[in-house]
Design a protein around this nucleic acid. Structure first.
Lengths: 141, 141
DNA sequence: ATAGTTGCAAAGGCTTTGCACCGCG
DNA sequence: CGCGGTGCAAAGCCTTTGCAACTAT
């Protein structure tokens, strides 16, 4: 089975869902395309501000919430206060290190989920693994 | 394979992990034992306040954070702002309705996760399903 | 003109922190 | 007395909202 390939140009992605590709939006979406690091609003803001010094945090929030409505980005379900954003161009799981809090992408064998479970209509699922990542493990020894 | 049965007495549970069973802590833990509804701090607070009117929200926070440190309770990874608490006496998954935001427990076939993936030490995993629950589905029709 | 965007400032909401008080060994 | 636990008040953050200025069609 082949993953559907999607266009990786932020401008085209935005147009596809009917959003005007403003400088800010393109920059934010491009950041997400280039940095697959599940960033927080602040990480995105701090980075793009170097190129667009007038960028406001509000616009980052606005854009990301818009992107979410259009299923361009998703949030990684964590138990942290800050939201972490994710593109999901391919289906994958996440490993969260309880030491350094870094979120790693993981390719797990797909699990079979019915479209309907206990009468609930299932649209999406996430698998989150937790533990100690390899870097933190070696730091300790 | 049999699930390990655990004592369901809040006092004993607290003592087992070395926490003194104060009135507040017992009440909070008992609430979680009796109400498997993935409550927020506020839900717990509002309920117990009826019996212990002097209870403070701070104490609810203090207790729950303590319980978490001792692995008595966990938080359900959602993308909401309020944390939802869960006991996990048995391993189960969660279904979150994107309409009413209710979190349902789900018994899914266990998935096989290695203790180590990509060099990361896996200690725990969560499966979160999302969609529309049966109640909200029928409301719409 | 008109609708859509941006960004500052303020508000809102959840959680943590500081600290005084209380109770119990 | 000393220690742990509680709870009020305040602070801290993340996020949203209100709104005025701006842009582009």
């Amino acid at each position: 089975m082949k993953e559907k390939t999607r266009n990786l140009d932020p401008v085209i992605l935005l147009k596809e869902v009917g959003l005007s590709p403003t400088m800010q939006r393109v920059a934010i979406l491009r950041y997400l395309l280039l940095n697959r690091n599940h960033p927080t609003v602040n990480m995105i803001y701090q980075d793009i501000r170097r190129k667009i010094p007038t960028l406001s945090k509000t616009s980052v929030y606005n854009s990301l919430n818009l992107f979410r409505k259009h299923n361009l980005v998703f949030t990684v379900p964590t138990d942290e206060d800050e939201k972490h954003y994710d593109l999901r161009l391919t289906s994958h799981s996440h490993f969260i290190c309880r030491e350094c809090r870094i979120i790693y992408d993981l390719k797990l064998p797909k699990i079979n989920i019915n479209d309907e479970i206990n009468g609930h209509k299932v649209e999406q699922y996430d698998v989150i693994l937790r533990g100690i990542c390899n870097k933190c493990k070696s730091k300790k020894s």
